[in-house]
Design a binder for these strands. Structure first.
Lengths: 209, 209
DNA sequence: GTCTATACTCCGATAGAC
DNA sequence: GTCTATCGGAGTATAGAC
């Protein structure tokens, strides 16, 4: 992968975070990357191809950030590690906000551009499994299915909160608090699931009506 | 409000659900509504104004649907009522899908179009309070702050799951299951909050590390 | 691989008649 | 209030030189 190519992808993430997928203009991207418009069409067939590659790039970068953070600030215990991983996306650092915004944009546009779906689905599965694994380290006796379900909910919650934060209707501290409490609630739930293995996949329903 | 105006707004929701806010072309909208392009600019100042009005329209319509559903299928008890309200958005009926898609699109585009934010924030606050109230009827002894926090999480979870469903990476039945379990988990959490009033705003943290 | 210059399409917005 | 006709700008993509 050439330097130029990477520079274009980095710039694409920046411009998408600034203007959205719909607001991305090849000309503005060219300026941001310090290259000509034509070079973008040379490296990526067209606009759609560019978006696909950008999505992959953003996903990779998010993985790198997670690894970097864990190295820089080693979490004390599995619960802290899980919190760190999930709260990582809710930070007002330039590159984090950029990544979150670009990811949200690309996912939103996938509702209408089918080409992005497979890339998106893959990243989603990996991310959910990662969270499920970390939940498993916090609650080793909880059943796999319960871990997977909790991970699904926690990652969906994160995306919902992130969307609200990014569109300005939920202050960042509130989003972080909501996420932290959401983790605590799910972890407590898993503790009960582990303690009462008799409760089947529909957890604690009978006693709620 | 004239018939034409309403017809345009209805058509706008339809076209947005079909092509996205990004894909909305005033010409296609005119065709869908059976009017001329110029009439759209007559009734709504510009594209941005049209989007603002469409957001308000979609919100109103969602409220109407909720009321209609409650009348048509009276829920048995407060928990069922809550479930019905939250699961309403996760249904593959044309008008529901249209509403959800349009709402998701408009929220996503609000990241870059500041004008939509106030309308969006207002609808969000109302919706969260509504859910908090219904949670309060399920768990009358739970503190207000806990109800509000649970409502925030549940509505964010709904939006996260809905986004995944609409962009095709999460099958609808899975989304519905996740939502139902999410409700159960939060309701169980509120039961503990009511039972142990000593536990402060950071729920069950101390015993988790 | 990278640039400059340009072709051509599409679309938002307005003018002006009825 | 509603239409037809049109303008002007913005934006994607390509041609062709280096």
């Amino acid at each position: 992968m050439s330097d130029r190519r990477t520079a274009i992808l980095e710039a694409a993430a920046t411009v998408i975070a600034r203007r959205g997928v719909r607001g991305l203009r090849v000309e503005e991207l060219a300026e941001e990357a310090g290259v000509s418009k034509a070079l973008i069409y040379y490296h990526f067939d067209d606009r759609a191809g560019l978006l696909r590659r950008t999505l992959a790039f953003v996903n990779n970068r998010a993985e790198r950030y997670t690894a970097e953070q864990e190295a820089a600030d080693p979490p004390a215990g599995p619960l802290r590690r899980l919190e760190q991983a999930l709260l990582l996306e809710l930070q007002d650092l330039p590159h984090v906000r950029e990544n979150s915004t670009a990811w949200g944009e690309l996912r939103a546009s996938a509702v209408f551009e089918t080409e992005l779906r497979s890339e998106l689905a893959l990243a989603s599965v990996i991310w959910i499994r990662e969270v499920a694994d970390q939940l498993g380290e916090v609650r080793p006796t909880a059943p796999e299915s319960a871990l997977a379900a909790s991970a699904e909910r926690l990652t969906a919650l994160l995306e919902g909160l992130s969307a609200r934060w990014l569109c300005g209707i939920l202050p960042l501290p509130d989003a972080r608090t909501a996420m932290r409490e959401g983790i605590a609630v799910e972890v407590a739930h898993l503790a009960r699931r582990a303690a009462e293995p008799s409760t089947e996949d529909t957890p604690s329903r009978a006693n709620l009506d």
